[in-house]
Nucleic acid binder design. Structure first.
Lengths: 219, 219
DNA sequence: AGATGTTATTTGCAAAAAACAAATAAGTCT
DNA sequence: AGACTTATTTGTTTTTTGCAAATAACATCT
């Protein structure tokens, strides 16, 4: 009934996205133990069947340990497995990705953000994991409000526009973008709230309750 | 270094989709061992770190054991975990879903297909797994050629149209559908091949090499 | 105060895509 | 041959996009 086989190692890893200086970045952590001690890597750890309700709870524990609070958006990405990915033996890693506004990270000093297009060498199969995470984020950005979770609670249409351009990695027409976003009802203007500056004030928006509904699309 | 905790059970489960009598169905298997002996369930099994290169290899092994050949389309769906999902204790199940043309299933007698909207009671958290698998399939159908993998190698435009309607669960205009599919280049007509019947013959198509590229879309 | 610079937001129009309705094509069956 | 049925194309209307330019709103400078 119980399998006679030795059990594989079960762990979680996390890809924590943020946008700093208008660039898509990942939070990395310096490993304090072997293997790969001293190297920068994705934050992760073993799943403790006693304390963790499930792997998502384990991921949340890891993230809280790293940045000190919960990520506004967290989603399971993919499960990586095999004998080659970890020198300690055959392992399974359930990977989660999260979106975190840089504004909330600035105070936690332990969190260092590295642009995804200029990452240092990563241990294990973390390079592959990052590739998959970026691909997923890009993919979802084209038909959902995901990128908005990289912004603080209040943001302007331009903030949103820029963050979509960053995550998708392409130029988007301003007028069309504005129209499509408003039609989707994923954000709502905050009455009488504007960001003031040296120029015309910009309307501030917040996510609406429909924010997580994927955009309507039919084949 | 190695965790002091008892290791969780690691298994794979599979959601095997097919279309029979114009209805979206799942292949279920009757459990031969406790727990839930005798009940119908998703095909699955333990991951054997020795024989399975990774969880995808384990899934393929399970599928081959069930239907006797490889599925034309296989993709990781999600990893379910927790103490409550299996009476034997805390477990992780990496779930894969596959698309299989009914035509290739008709000969293997062990494969029984049940319409997804009329499934029998399922053990473990298999009900949840099914829900997630259907959701994923529906989602991907709106922007990819996935449903085409439920068809045999040669099919008509009407076959394809019906299968999209089935998986998406909505009506699609025939003329628009035809145009969009052809523009995407995911299928190609087989020269001089037609399905003949009591009426006007229908052009036969096959998947093109671009079949797996998701449709182009911008926000 | 008024001119100027700069960013935000709206408007208008041409082009493309989609939805809808209907006609035409190509066989079998009687 | 004519009726019937399904496949495929065509045409028209409506909606969405892409692009360019105009207008709005403020701070700052003169």
């Amino acid at each position: 009934m119980e399998p006679a086989y030795p059990q594989p190692l079960v762990m979680v890893d996390t890809a924590l996205f943020t946008i700093r200086d208008e660039r898509l970045c990942l939070i990395l952590t310096r490993r304090k133990e072997p293997p790969f001690e001293g190297l920068l890597a994705l934050p992760g750890g073993f799943v403790h069947a006693q304390e963790d309700a499930d792997t998502e709870a384990a991921a949340r524990r890891v993230i809280r340990g790293k940045i000190g609070f919960d990520a506004p958006y967290l989603e399971q990405l993919f499960t990586f497995s095999g004998a080659a990915r970890d020198p300690r033996g055959w392992s399974v890693s359930v990977v989660y990705y999260a979106l975190i506004p840089w504004s909330s990270l600035e105070q936690s000093p332990s969190a260092e953000a590295f642009p995804v297009d200029g990452l240092p060498p990563l241990p294990f199969d973390h390079r592959q994991i990052v590739a998959k995470a970026v691909e997923r984020l890009r993919g979802k950005a084209t038909y959902s409000s995901l990128p908005a979770f990289l912004l603080p609670a209040e943001f302007t249409m331009n903030d949103l526009h820029q963050i979509y351009e960053q995550t998708i990695g392409a130029r988007l027409d301003k007028a069309s973008f504005r129209h499509k976003i408003l039609v989707q009802d994923i954000i709502e203007p905050i009455p009488k709230h504007f960001r003031v500056g040296a120029h015309r004030p910009a309307q501030l928006y917040r996510l609406s309750s429909k924010a997580l509904t994927p955009f309507e699309r039919k084949i």
